[in-house]
Design a protein around this nucleic acid. Structure first.
Ligand SMILES: [Zn+2]
Ligand SMILES: [Zn+2]
Ligand SMILES: [Zn+2]
Ligand SMILES: [Zn+2]
Lengths: 168, 168
DNA sequence: TTATTAATGTTATATTATAACGTATATTAA
DNA sequence: TTAATATACGTTATAATATAACATTAATAA
């Protein structure tokens, strides 16, 4: 089971998250002979500013501010599409939002844990779950191609206040 | 494991699906002291015309034709919201579409099997999967509240042509 | 019946995403 | 180096999905 949950939902040195993500991205681009342009790099970096998914129009605003010039939606969506195709980011359909992928190299299905309180989202690659889903499909002769798995709930951080209350 | 997969992805007497769904809906409304108005009933019935999820604006068109008068988006969305709250339908976030729930009474999480070829979608309530997800969350101190699970692939119907080819 | 609540009608607008076409920039071939 | 090509970006318009706000009507309760 591969996950960034422990990191995401705890205080941590987030600079390392950013650096690691950007390094991986550049490596992957070289490997795939893809171009990491300023726009694409900026969008990826913006998505890694936190572990909270961002919508396309939030990205638009932040990108415009960062590059200090007006940015139109297609610019953002093109960068998003590029990053999605390389597997550097994911789309969270239930939120219409995007988030950086912490392990873009490894084959993995997307299981997200999304905190309804703070908005942070972590990702899991969970072999058992994937196998179970696969065989659940197979049992009814359904050939699995891809999947979108989103779990909503309270992250460790946001559960704590409640525990504190019960101590009083 | 509770599912309507066998039914959905095979030829079947769909009239029975519709009748069962409408009966369940009316029963549930009585039980919950909720009003099944013409608009709401029509939307539910439209969603049950097939096992393919429909978007809000497809519903708008079909509802306008059915009721023979212009229908504005809020009318559709209000009916959708009502049916969602009663658990009579579900939203499929990755499709921006809605589908009737085959077992609105039973507590269940929403696992959908969506055929990328014919668009049909079936639903599963799968205890093992839910338990596994629950405990996967618990392992990283994540308290599960709700979930959105969508599997994409080929249904039995749409896999068959390929099998036929290999017989030639 | 009147008061109250619930549902719908209506208009406008917010939010998310893409189409179409032109321009600039980078890569490759000559 | 230059010309040809492919790739990325700029720009404008618009499609597709969803909601806000307020007026009107219908159903229920007092
Ligand atoms: Zn971090
Ligand atoms: Zn990922
Ligand atoms: Zn049916
Ligand atoms: Zn259901």
């Amino acid at each position: 089971m591969l996950t960034n949950s422990r990191l995401v939902h705890q205080p941590h040195d987030h600079g390392r998250c950013i650096n690691a993500a950007m390094t991986r991205a550049h490596d992957l681009c070289i490997e795939q002979n893809a171009r990491m342009t300023t726009t694409r790099e900026s969008v990826l970096r913006l998505l890694w500013q936190s572990h909270r998914p961002l919508g396309a129009y939030q990205l638009q605003d932040q990108l415009a501010e960062l590059l200090n010039k007006p940015i139109a939606p297609p610019t953002v969506y093109r960068a998003i599409e590029f990053l999605l195709q390389l597997g550097l980011i994911h789309r969270l359909p239930s939120l219409n939002a995007y988030i950086g992928c912490p392990f873009p190299n490894s084959e993995h299905s997307n299981l997200f844990l999304i905190c309804t309180e703070c908005g942070s989202a972590s990702e899991m690659a969970h072999a058992t779950i994937n196998n179970t889903l696969q065989s659940a499909g197979a049992k009814v002769n359904f050939t699995l191609q891809s999947q979108s798995l989103e779990l909503f709930g309270l992250c460790p951080q946001c559960s704590e206040p409640l525990e504190a209350d019960s101590n009083e």
